[in-house]
């Protein structure tokens, strides 16, 4: 089976698989190499993704969402370097207009991929429907698991937000006595909302599903902040840790906005893709003390 690489949750894995590809999600860590031809003040994730793509020429291609300035450039750079790249334009809006637009864009991407894989559109639609049903089942499992996780009274529950490199810090946070609730799109269902039901149009379902999830920092409007505030209230979270890479504009704007609106202690851990574990340990200890003793 042919393989496609991608790095952003806006690229739906369900669609790639329904088109007949194996989808590989890029999950960098602090040791991932970076494309050195790009200037310093440029997204570290995109630099590492470009480097990863160049080292995986055996893949059939890479799907890049046109969701931010850095990803737009990443797509152009991959094309210029003759790496097969497919783009998905993601609206910067929420609401019905955005659903309609994203549906059209997903349709364009699907047709482009189907032309590569040779799978029929009918086959694709049936496969996508199945994939979405599976996703809904996974959401239920996610909900049950987080329900269990909440029952850990000896730990300090906190919201953990951050981009791709953040997962590397999870063990450290657990070790420091925190109960970590990662800032995931699936968290929307923890807010007690009814899951979306499937209709006769799987592409529209997919678009709705993608945009209905808890908005990411890219859509840093009031909807995200309200949802995060509700999430913190619902789960009884006592603080927020944000891990961010130096040149991610969305994270950088969000830090200022969250600091102003959540009303909880916030700890920001910045990195330029070189880890600072000893320093982070000290800061997490101080943060823990601050939450426990005010």
């Amino acid at each position: 089976m042919c393989t496609l690489g991608y790095f952003c949750r806006y690229v739906p894995q369900e669609l790639l698989e329904a088109c007949g590809f194996k989808a590989v999600f890029f999950k960098p860590d602090f040791s991932s190499p970076q494309c050195s031809s790009l200037p310093v003040p440029f997204c570290a994730l995109c630099k590492t993704f470009i480097s990863w793509a160049l080292n995986h020429r055996e893949f059939s291609g890479f799907v890049v969402p046109l969701a931010c300035d850095a990803s737009r450039r990443t797509y152009e750079i991959l094309r210029a370097l003759s790496v097969p790249a497919f783009s998905l334009d993601v609206p910067a809006l929420a609401g019905e207009t955005a659903v309609e637009r994203l549906t059209e864009n997903l349709d364009d991407l699907a047709r482009e991929l189907l032309a590569q894989s040779g799978r029929s559109f009918l086959e694709f639609t049936a496969s996508l429907k199945q994939a979405l049903e599976e996703t809904l089942r996974q959401q239920e499992a996610f909900f049950r698991e987080w329900g269990k996780r909440r029952r850990a009274p000896d730990r300090i529950p906190l919201l953990f937000s951050g981009s791709h490199f953040a997962h590397v810090l999870l063990p450290l946070l657990e070790e420091k006595g925190f109960l970590v609730f990662p800032d995931l799109p699936e968290n929307r269902i923890l807010l007690g909302e009814e899951p979306l039901s499937l209709t006769a149009s799987p592409l529209e379902d997919l678009a709705r599903f993608t945009l209905h999830r808890l908005p990411c920092p890219r859509l840093s409007g009031p909807a995200r902040r309200t949802a995060l505030k509700r999430l913190c209230g619902t789960l009884g979270l006592r603080g927020v840790v944000i891990v961010f890479s130096k040149f991610c504009d969305f994270q950088l704007y969000e830090i200022g906005l969250l600091g102003r609106s959540l009303g909880l202690p916030v700890l920001c851990l910045e990195h330029d893709t070189t880890p600072s574990f000893p320093q982070w340990e000290t800061r997490l200890d101080a943060f823990r003390e601050m939450i426990l003793h005010g």
Binding site: A67, C68, D69, A92, R218, S220, G221, P222, D249, F250, L252, Y253, E254, G256, L257, R260, S261
Partner: peptide, 13 residues
């Protein structure tokens, strides 16, 4: 530029 979106969200706030 997408930074504009973040900038204007902050201004709205």
């Amino acid at each position: 530029c997408h930074g504009t979106v973040g900038f204007f969200e902050v201004l709205r706030e």
